[in-house]
Amino acid sequence: MKKSVILGALTVAGLAASAAVAGTMDDVKARGKLNCGVTTGLVGFAAPDANGEWQGFDVGVCRAVAAAVLGDPKAVEFVPTTGKTRFTALASGEIDMLARNTTWTFSRDVDLKFEFTGINYYDGQGFMVPKDLGVGSAKDLDGATVCIQTGTTTELNLADFFRSNNISYEPVPIETNAEAQQQYLAGACDVYTTDASGLAATRATFEDPSAHVVLPEIVSKEPLGPLVRHGDNDWGDVVRWSLNALIAAEELGVTSANIAELSAAPTNNPEVNRLLGTEGNLGEMLGLDAEWAKRAIMAGGNYGELFEKNIGENTPIGLARGLNAQWKNGGLIYTPPFR
């Protein structure tokens, strides 16, 4: 008899606990803050500056979502995650979304039960070598010592690349970008490999950047994007379309400079009107108000502005748009229509 009482009590505890689960959007609104998972520090994508403010391209996405949902781009709690902890943090509900240059792969999407809500940066894994090594191609790297940043898809791509080209190498796994850089500069490895954007960012901080070259080979596809938990489609839609709004804004010429003017009254372009909420009821469909996209864009500018401000050619990182140009300019950045 005693046993059944205990089991009963346990069941009640379990039920009470499960009743507490609600939609992520309601949670975020009730909390008044968006918990956004970011990296522990990768300049240009997400890193706290000298004043402790998080800055970067991924951070911009978090802020846009917070602005769309909560009306305040500052209402974000940035949760630093490592490669190891990011998925658990998301799965367990510690964070509402993950914007940590995470590669969209089949197994993460399907097996780990996450939902990628778009791609904010098309990346690929590259190699950097000192110029005086005299290496012109990654295929010349037979027997080289390669520094890898662990916790990413990098080590898998590397193994695949060297295996398919049938050349040997010596991997040196390193936890943080800063330490990998130190090892590379000290000469403990001949090659440093990570995403090409990361390589550019790293090279920019060297004492003498011109002494290092990034090899032409890009050995993998790394579509990076924000992701949310499987199963909460409403919340997934909000994150997806907040990102799309930034992309659409650039395509339609809506910038943080002219957005006030464009949203004051309906313009001649119906898609701009729908995006900014002066026409139609897209915001309502998402469960937000009409000005959601306007706020998202005002948070840090449109996609192009975010790019230029954080990782563009005028920043120390100095990345060209390349694949990340709008589809009209020969890039891959493309949003489904707002209608």
Binding site: T40, G41, V43, P80, T176, A178, Q182, T205
Partner: peptide
Amino acid sequence: VISMFDLVGMIRGPILASTEWNGVY
């Protein structure tokens, strides 16, 4: 090691990752 910014975490994370102080060890 688990992404908390204590003294060592502060050094290995934000400070060494910043453009200004990258390489001070």
